[in-house]
């Protein structure tokens, strides 16, 4: 009985461990990259002559960047123009609270609707929202306005109420100028607060201060290629470095398996020396199975071995193991239909 309980507990423990590992793996992978990486990237509060929406209107706009390498769906996320206090919501779930809040206060909070492909942001891409207070114009038109001449803020909340990003727009942002991240996707949250040191005002006067709705703020260049093109025009450095890496990797493997080989040799000498010739095989008293001669049994064994292409522990040796499994322990036996008494 005690053994049974112990075994049951062991099985339960094993199950628990497996479930824990699965949960941990899935949880970690879900947190790896996604909505929490979305970033405010650029904003324009007074748009007189810049970007137009699909109706040809100039509206204040802001841009969100997906810095991950996977598509991120923004549906059911919340954009607000002030910090929403979620600490005193009682038993209500943050999602439900934000939901209700967005319905009651559309001038403060906007819930990104479901089912619009425009709100799915492709990897390393941008999405532009128009802050015109006209949600009837589409999912990318939010329910409140950004106004020029006043200090405005934008807060991006995940579906479960976690704060994803914050942007504080300066009041003195000139017309047709944007407030933009120096480099796309940099995290500028410092203890949940906006850190303005990564932001700059752009007026579109030159390439460095270009206004780039839906585009990268900083021109994307493959710095590696530029670097090698400039500093290693003959390819000598990369050749020496790369060959060094290839050699190091294979040298390590060589050392490791050289040591394994030594250990294996020692073990083989002790336990598994091959007989030098058939004559060296000690005679045994074991009788041949049934009436079959030894040669026939050897031929059958060889044919079986060739047919099954079975791997043995050593080449040249064929081992037959007794099958100790019973109907209680063998899966094959359990799955076989039992004979039916008629």
């Amino acid at each position: 009985m005690a053994t049974f309980l112990f075994n049951t507990r062991l099985t339960m423990n094993r199950k628990g461990i497996i479930i824990t590992i699965f949960v941990a793996v899935f949880t970690l992978s879900s947190f790896a990259q996604g909505r929490k990486d979305l970033r405010f990237n650029e904003v324009m509060t007074q748009n007189d002559s810049n970007l137009v929406d699909q109706y040809g209107q100039h509206q204040p706009w802001f841009e969100i960047f997906n810095p991950t390498y996977g598509t991120v769906g923004m549906e059911q996320m919340f954009i607000a123009n002030r910090r929403i206090d979620l600490s005193n919501i009682g038993d209500q779930k943050p999602k439900d609270f934000l939901n209700d809040f967005a319905v009651k206060h559309p001038d403060v909070c906007y819930e990104i609707p479901r089912g619009d492909k425009d709100t799915k942001v492709a990897p390393r891409s941008h999405v532009v929202f128009f802050a015109d207070g006209n949600t009837a114009a589409g999912s990318l038109h939010i329910s409140f306005k950004l106004q020029a001449g006043r200090e405005d803020s934008l807060f991006l909340y995940d579906v479960n109420g976690d704060l994803v990003d914050v942007l504080a727009v300066p009041a003195n942002l000139p017309a047709n100028c944007t407030y933009a991240l120096i480099e796309d996707g940099i995290s500028c949250l410092s203890n949940g607060n906006f850190a303005p040191k990564f932001w700059t005002v752009r007026n579109g006067a030159n390439d460095d201060s270009a206004i780039t709705p839906g585009k990268f703020n900083k021109r994307v260049v493959n710095e590696n290629i530029e670097k090698f093109h400039k500093h290693d025009s003959t390819g000598g450095i990369i050749t020496v470095t790369a060959m060094g890496i290839v050699f190091s990797a294979l040298l390590l493997l060589f050392i490791l398996f050289y040591l394994f080989g030594l250990a294996n040799k020692a073990t083989q000498k002790e336990t598994n020396e091959m007989p030098a010739a058939l004559a060296d095989i000690p005679a045994t008293d074991a009788k041949p199975a049934g009436d079959q001669p030894d040669e026939a049994i050897a031929a059958i064994c060889l044919a079986l071995y060739q047919h099954l292409n079975a791997h043995d522990s050593e080449s040249g040796i064929l081992t037959f193991n007794r099958d100790d499994q019973t109907a209680w322990s063998s899966k094959a036996n359990l799955m076989r239909q039992l004979p039916i008494r008629k």
Binding site: M243, F247, A249, L250, L251, L253, F254, F257, Y258
Partner: peptide, 15 residues
């Protein structure tokens, strides 16, 4: 296992 190094050396063709 020392033959691994021969496999590494031949990669010089690439570079």
């Amino acid at each position: 296992p020392k033959l691994m190094l021969v496999g590494a050396a031949a990669q010089f063709g690439i570079f």
